[in-house]
Amino acid sequence: MCLGIPGQIIEISNVQQKLAIVNVGGVKRQINIACIVNEQHPVESCIGDWVLVHVGFAMNRINEKEAIETLQLLEELAELVSHQQ
């Protein structure tokens, strides 16, 4: 139920209603992007954003920097674990 799938916004289809076309694993569909727009990040600037899609809505933008850091931490852990053995 709470499933969310990452997708990338490729086109804005309705600025006023905050609708955009998102590419989710090669499938294109229209979603509502109201939850990811604000004054600093207007509708038009959402193209290229990676978002998490849930029941036809973008829930949030995916923070690439944080994602990289999470994976980086695991790399470091790998070194630590192998050193200790």
Partner: peptide, 18 residues
């Protein structure tokens, strides 16, 4: 917070307001 690529401390204000 392990999921910090998506979860922010204050949550999503637009969603909460709606």
């Amino acid at each position: 917070n392990q999921y910090n690529r998506l979860v922010e401390k204050p949550g999503n204000q637009v969603a909460i307001a709606a």
